[in-house]
């Protein structure tokens, strides 16, 4: 593309060209600058407090008592992990089923209805999901299953719906790029459509499917507004899926409004732990991608 690019001469239009290229270069640097600033500022605020409290104590103490300077986020790590796992347990099989449905089974007409629906599912604001969970799922759990209703279960139900589009979109792409010859070869050998899907198509798409699950996990761990409205937000270790929990994200959004001093730093530290978690998940994805190439 650049082969036919001429070096601009020293005339006015040449200077203009160079100036514009410079402007474009600067805008391209914006993303790099942004990611660096985010990492530096969030870590600079959060790390000193983790060092002060002690990494071990911050991560594994279950006492969160900001008034008395006790900062342990074990209950929130447990809360975040519990609702994330609860969401993935049902959203991954359903998401896979949907990806298979859309890429292998559905007629173009049904696809034309389902794909926009999944886009819309992805486009709905998380606060809407939280609100829906608050008025429907929470009372339902309270009335029929017991407990306060605000619970790991409520969070898992709503988060599962929210991560579906992430899983479906990525897994569907992975399934779609499996070469047609694989399918035709398998069918020609007498395999049924399902045998072809389960033994040929899914294994060939497996790394993409794993990427879908990992990114879905990242989405679930980082979700804030939906979770904060429906999980009850208490800083106690959960005993069952009907127990209320507080997520790491919830901790930040609930207390940021009035926190000062060490308390505020501890909220940034909570953000740092969440951030590290997301970085690890993204690293897993890019390692997987490199292996595939």
């Amino acid at each position: 593309m650049n082969d036919f690019r001429k070096k601009p001469g020293i005339d006015r239009s040449g200077i203009k060209e160079v100036f514009i290229e410079g402007l474009l270069l600067i805008s391209a640097l914006a993303s790099i600058l942004a990611i660096f600033l985010i990492i530096i500022f969030v870590f600079a605020k959060g790390l000193p407090l983790i060092a002060k409290v002690g990494v071990f104590k911050f991560l594994f103490s279950s006492t969160w008592d900001p008034v008395n300077g006790q900062f342990g986020i074990a209950t929130m790590i447990a809360g975040s992990l519990a609702i994330t796992l609860g969401a993935l347990i049902w959203a991954v099989p359903l998401g896979l089923a949907l990806s298979i449905f859309l890429s292998e089974i559905a007629s173009p007409r049904i696809k034309g209805i389902m794909v926009p629906m999944i886009e819309l599912l992805a486009g709905l604001p998380s606060v809407i999901y939280g609100f829906f969970g608050l008025v429907i799922i929470v009372p339902f759990i309270r009335d029929y299953l017991g407990g306060p209703g605000f619970s790991i279960l409520a969070g898992s139900v709503i988060l599962g719906i929210m991560v579906l589009p992430t899983i479906v979109n990525i897994a569907r792409d992975a399934i779609t790029v499996v070469p047609r010859e694989y399918r035709e070869g398998s069918l020609a050998l007498g395999a049924t459509q399902w045998e072809t899907i389960s033994r040929i198509v899914l294994p060939s798409a497996s790394s993409g499917i794993i990427t879908a699950i990992v990114l879905g996990m990242g989405r679930a761990v980082g979700e804030t507004m939906a979770v904060v409205l429906i999980t009850g937000n208490v800083t106690r270790m959960p005993e069952s899926i009907l127990s209320p929990v507080r997520s790491m994200t919830g901790n930040v959004v609930l207390e940021m409004g009035y926190a000062t001093g060490d308390h505020q730093l501890a909220l940034f530290a909570t953000g740092v732990v969440l951030f590290v978690f997301i970085i690890i998940l993204n690293a897993l994805v890019s390692v997987g991608r490199k292996e595939r190439v």
């Binding site: 969030v42 980082g222 959004v253 940021m256 969440l274 997301i278």
Partner: peptide, 27 residues
């Protein structure tokens, strides 16, 4: 350079909104 910018953009799109909130607040 393209790879660096694209990787940054990809990293940005994976960051949860609450982290953007923390950054926006402090910055």
């Amino acid at each position: 350079f393209s790879r660096a910018v694209e990787m940054s953009a990809e990293a940005l799109s994976g960051i949860p909104s609450i982290i953007f909130g923390l950054f926006g607040f402090i910055f």
